[in-house]
Amino acid sequence: MAGIALPLPRWRARSGAPTGLRAPQVSEQLVLWIGGSLLFLTAVLNFYVFQVSVVATSAYEVQALQREQDVWRGRNQQLQLEVAKARSLRWVEYSANQQLGMATGDLPIYLTVDPGNSAVNTSYTSTKSLRGDD
């Protein structure tokens, strides 16, 4: 009949178990070593799994943040475009003419100011249209 010789507890082995089929002697140090190794391995594996899960979570978060950053960057570009369009001459001219009812002005009037005299002299005036040919 086949059997498996299980290691006996140490106290039994020391207290004088029946001779005949004696279980092999296992040192306490070896058991501790194996047990410790298993515990360490378990801890390491747990740590690894934890780390992988943290990295995976972070990677997904980074991906999401990158997508969000792209969206914000796109939104920023679109807003800058809107600002540029609002400041464009085309829009300014349209607003001035159509919305505010402004018309093209006459030739500008330049004034000569004498630093020693507070009086202001008009050096040149004209009512001639600047855009007479327009």
Binding site: D70, R73, G74, Q77, Q78, Q80, L81, A84, R87, S88
Partner: peptide
């Protein structure tokens, strides 16, 4: 003033 810009 921008004359040509790229927008996403």
């Amino acid at each position: 003033h921008p004359l040509a810009v790229t927008v996403t």
